[in-house]
Amino acid sequence: MDVGELVASFFRVLPQALVSGLALGSVYALIAQGYYVTFTTTETLNFAQGEFLMVGALTSFSLLVLAGLPYLVAVVAVILLMVLMGIAVERVAIRPLRQLLSVGWILSTVGVSVILRQFAEIYWGREQKRVPSIFGDTPLYIANTGIFPQELFIILASLLTMAALLFFLKRSTFGKALQAVAFNPAAAGLMGINVRQMVVVAYVISSILAGIAGVLIAPVIFAHAEMGALLGLKAFAAAIIGGIENPVGILVVGIGLGIAEFIVASYNASFRDAVTFLLLILILAWRPQGLFQRVTAEKV
């Protein structure tokens, strides 16, 4: 293959990679915003976030396919389940380990991820479950590029969810309180803010994001017990590269990763996962604080 041919083939695969990458990437971004929310408030995060997504996806399978419930009911049920799981993971895996100046929460949340995976294998079995899209499986063709309606829905729903999240965090008094807890928990307490409650809220938000991501992505990649591990890890890569305290950076990098992955996959599908982490290592060697993290000095 000479250079001209390579360039030509690149532009041939680009539109498809852009569309599918945008859909997958916005899911990465959605999961990674969960890391952002808990990390800024508590400097901890849930390494079982990918498994929360998996539970969300498989629950949507049970509710939509097995129980035949309406889509909206299933979404609300998954969100409620995530609220409970968020409260539980904070109480069991984070709170007992935060006081000790330890990184024990890493191990405990990874432990939660293993438990959830095994539980899912027992409860739902090992095989992949097909969750049909409510928009059907007929791709739309626009200029030789096939788009599944579900992919469009993923992009739209994730972007809307993230916009709502950021609006909530930056504009509402509650969001400001969450930021205050992140910046200085002791001073936040003096403002009448219940810090412990805010930490729980951060974990609940993080879990809901993972659950929504699971419901969105299930129709395009099959739901199964192992689906969360790599998604959670790639979303973590997006959070690190984008700068874990920068939600916009996370969004940009998440989408970028999704697109890069599909471009690579159209040449060699077995290399697509490696590319994320190759990029991660190269970028961190160049900018250890992440691509978009500002290094700021604050007046004290």
Binding site: Q179, A180, F183, N184, A186, A188, I193, E298, K299
Partner: peptide
């Protein structure tokens, strides 16, 4: 109400938002 040593303002939020947080209770 306790105004703590070393001000402890929320440096990454606006002056106005700091006051909003003061009124949180």
């Amino acid at each position: 109400v306790h105004v703590p040593e070393g001000r402890q303002v929320f440096a990454n939020q606006s002056v106005r938002d700091n006051l909003v947080l003061g009124a949180f209770p």
